[in-house]
Amino acid sequence: MNEQKPKLKLAIYWAAACGGCCVSVLDVHEKLFDVVAAADLVFWPIALDFKYKDVEEMPDGHIDVTLFNGAIRNSENEYMAKLLRKKTKILVAYGSCSHLGGIPGLANFFTGEEIFKRVYEESESTINPEKIRPQHKYEVPEGTLEIPVFFNDVRPLNKVVDVDYYLPGCPPQTERLLEVFLAIVTGAELPPKGSVVGAGTKAQCDECTRKKTENKLIRKFYRPWEINDDGESCFMEQGVLCMGPATRSGCGYRCIKGNAPCRGCYGPTADVTDPGTKMMSAIASIIDTKEPDELEKIISDVVDPAGTFYRFSLPSAIIRRKLL
């Protein structure tokens, strides 16, 4: 029998996530057999019955690669991030939430208190006259029950622990994951620590095949459902906000191919510090007016700049949360 190379030890964990990232891993379909042939899954809460205790008992650096998805929004997320960092050689921030804060990061428009009030008192489907809230600690005859502490601020993984690589996307394209995984398994030379992997370096606009006109200017912005997209010309030139100019390529501009503007899930390109400021500049350069009043009217159609520009990246933005 051939001498077997020791199998890679792989872990996948979800923190503040929707579960889509874990599903994107399952989307490798029958290739999962190749993955399992090359790697032992030592921890993966969505699919396998390992406990936190099992991870705690592993020696440090025991896991070769952890794909960490989800943002850090409570003390359990933070504990697991630190624990997995200690037990893992290569820690990958997998998906937008872990990379930049993602959709859960939109909670940074509020405080923990505001969120609890909405959820446990005000939401249309809530009846809670005694205003009962979850308590961090609760005494019962059997002892003390504890649930995680809910933080005010949502953070991406790199604000909590050291991260080796970032694999962007909401969720990442499964093909990109396979490429990265294959590179690790075959022992190919890995890019420098801190790199974004499984994505391009240019902007979506550089790959997108929609028709662009030189110096096209516009006088009105529309929400996507307000116009009949011609299916061919650049969204921005039709007055529909598209995050393409500020977003890293790598997904194969899949939303645009589906006739929807890019929402920015791959995060900013390498030379963009902040997706929002890049978009403000991009928008400023296509508006066709010099009159302040008209300008104000045109910009009033950019309904929610903060939520649009930072849909996936608020906790990593220059201003990473709303002022209280």
Binding site: P292, V302, K322
Partner: peptide, 20 residues
């Protein structure tokens, strides 16, 4: 300066949303 003015209006809207 026109470019600056357009950015300024966008920035105004944005900082307001951020509570500034």
């Amino acid at each position: 300066n026109y470019r600056c003015m357009r950015r300024y209006h966008l920035l105004q809207k944005y900082i307001q949303q951020m509570g500034i």
